[in-house]
């Protein structure tokens, strides 16, 4: 029998593919990257078979290359995701996501009495653990965990 060889989500000519997103994180990734507000062509698929997760999701965005800050946002909510840069239908770069030791301006401190929730101060966290995710606020020194994480 001929092996079915068809892309579940069609290829893009130029842009970025975010692969290996856990299926339940797909819409979070779309939201934090603000993809619903851009006019570029975006295709995505979810609940695709994955050896790693059982079910994975994939997003392909035409003619968009993400900034480091955006990549860090993805790393926060889907650390196992992979980023592929596509030029002329070819993968020219592959990135595994790694969280830096410190992140700035991308997550909110969960502590309602933290200065970052009272004055226009850019948030800053050191990552004290990736699994489970634990962020220590540079200002109030309280720990924000995955359950209380809000991406700005």
């Amino acid at each position: 029998m001929e092996k079915a060889k068809q892309l579940s989500v069609s290829a893009i000519k130029n842009g970025t593919v975010i692969d290996h997103i856990p299926a339940d994180s797909l819409f979070t990734v779309i939201t934090i990257l603000g993809l619903e507000h851009i006019s570029n062509q975006i295709t995505f698929g979810t609940n695709l078979e994955s050896k790693k997760f059982g079910k994975k999701a994939i997003i392909k965005v035409s003619a968009v290359y993400f900034t480091e800050e955006e990549i860090n946002k993805i790393a926060l909510v889907a650390p196992a995701a992979r980023l592929n840069i596509i030029r002329n239908y070819e993968v020219v770069e592959k990135h595994e996501l790694t969280l830096p030791d410190e992140i700035e301006g991308i997550a909110r401190c969960f502590n309602p009495t933290c200065i970052t929730n009272h004055e226009p101060v850019k948030t800053r966290f050191s990552i004290i653990s990736q699994k489970p995710l634990r962020l220590k606020c540079h200002y109030c020194e309280k720990i924000t965990d995955e359950e209380h994480l809000t991406i700005i």
Binding site: T113, I115, C140, E141
Partner: peptide, 9 residues
């Protein structure tokens, strides 16, 4: 100050 992190800021 009563707000945490105010002194660092």
């Amino acid at each position: 100050h009563s707000i945490e992190g105010s002194a660092r800021y």
